[in-house]
Structures are given as C-alpha cells and as structure tokens.
C-alpha cells in the first residue's frame, strides 16, 4: 500500500514527453472543477460605499451572431472547422455572472442579491445587467487567442440608469503554444483542452477592467447615497 503511494507520484513525475521534436507549452489544463470560480481582484482599492447596498447581477444577454451552430453551441472539443479554428463558446454567461459577483463581494458594504430572489424581495439598490457583444476563441498553429467584449448597464430598481452611458469593456488573452519550433512541419494539431481556460482568462481580463472602471464605481456610490 505504502509502495503505491510512492509509486504513483514517481510515475507521474517521470512521465516523459512523447517523441516530439518541439516542446508544447499550454495554458492551464482543462481541469477547472467549475468554470468561472476565479477571483477578480482589481488593482485599485475598493471604493468606500456610504451604506450597505444590495446589488443584483442579472444574466447577460447574448447578442452574438451564431455562425456555426454545431461548433458555437458548446465548448468545442476541437476548434478546427472548415472556416478556420474559431469558435464562439455559448456557455459563458454563468462565468461572467459569477466573476462579477465574486469581484463585487469583495467590496465593503456591497451585498450580492441573487437575481432569482429579486422578484420576491425587491430591495436591490443597484441592478447590473449587460450583454455579450463578442466572445470568441481562436487557435492558430502558434497561439491561442480569446477576445471578449461586454456592454454593462447599471440601474436602480425603478429603471433609472446610474451611468451616463453604458460601460464597454474588452478583454483579451493570448498565449503562445510553441517555443520557437525548429521545423514548422513538425507542428502538431492544437490540443483542445486549453481553449476553455483561454476564454476564461479573457473574461477575467474584461471583468477586471469593469471592476476598475471609474463610472461603475461612481454609479454604485451614487446608489449608496
């Protein structure tokens, strides 16, 4: 039994790369237990709200045009298609919402009220909604690249906007897969697993910009006044 405990990490550690001439470096593997569980930590300090307020984050509208329903519907296990290696993953609304909620939760005096309860309680001072304008991931021979852009609205419960205009944020993540391939003929097909993390990182980037956004902060401070 004890031997097994020793052997398994040894075997895992010693597992060598198969006989390829180039080393493949990928983003974090596709092993997130639940997607969108990352923490969004803005670089600027959280604003001081005057009083505790309830914030509700509504699920975003998805205004992307679906071009290839088969590939765009779910995280594609293989990004290759006849039109190139581009997919628009659909299942990111939960990731976006959880990311915003996790980021806002860190603010002092901000409480998150689930959208499902809002209908019954009706005591949210700020309602954050938005739409996904773009979120796509592409995989080329050399890198992954994910681009996501959101439009954010912040309103009071009677529908009055807390912003002068919608906030537009765009996030991007790109990662080189191969380190200086000596021979381009030896490049192998792109492993599918890192596509989802690449999208997640792009969303994270966009949400970081959102939580750092000055007008969002001003809007929430106005709601707390």
């Amino acid at each position: 039994m004890r031997l097994k405990f020793l052997a398994i990490p040894l075997l895992l550690g010693c597992h060598a790369q198969l006989g390829t001439s180039v080393r493949v470096t990928t983003p974090k593997p596709f092993t997130t237990p639940q997607m969108g569980t990352y923490e969004v930590r803005p670089d600027t300090p959280e604003p001081e709200l005057q009083r505790p307020i309830n914030i509700t984050v509504l699920p975003f509208l998805d205004s992307r045009r679906m071009t290839r329903p088969g590939v765009d519907r779910i995280w594609s296990h293989d990004a290759e298609s006849r039109r190139g290696r581009v997919v628009q993953p659909r299942e990111i609304r939960g990731i976006v919402r959880r990311g915003i909620e996790r980021g806002l939760k860190r603010w002092p005096n901000a409480r998150i009220l689930p959208a499902e309860e809002l209908d019954l309680r009706r005591d949210a001072e700020a309602i954050l909604s938005g739409e996904i304008q773009e979120c796509r991931v592409s995989a080329s021979f050399a890198n992954y690249r994910a681009d996501c852009a959101f439009k954010i609205h912040l309103r009071t419960q009677d529908g009055r906007s807390l912003l002068d205009q919608p906030i537009l944020v765009a996030g991007r993540f790109s990662k080189r897969i191969y380190e200086r391939p000596a021979d381009w003929r030896s490049v192998e097909p792109v492993p599918p697993n890192p596509l989802a993390p690449a999208v997640e990182r792009a969303i994270e980037d966009a949400l970081l910009k959102l939580l750092n956004n000055e007008s969002l902060r001003n809007g929430l401070m106005e709601a707390a006044r």
């Binding site: 699920p59 959208a115 009677d158």
Partner: peptide, 17 residues
Amino acid sequence: DAAAALKEELSNAVRVA
C-alpha cells in the same frame, strides 16, 4: 418606460438564469 423595461427584464431573469 424605464420601469416597465426593467420589470420585463427582471421577469425574464429567473428563466434566463
């Protein structure tokens, strides 16, 4: 108008969630 728009969105929110 704004209240009606938000109300509709909220009534959809549960379903969308």
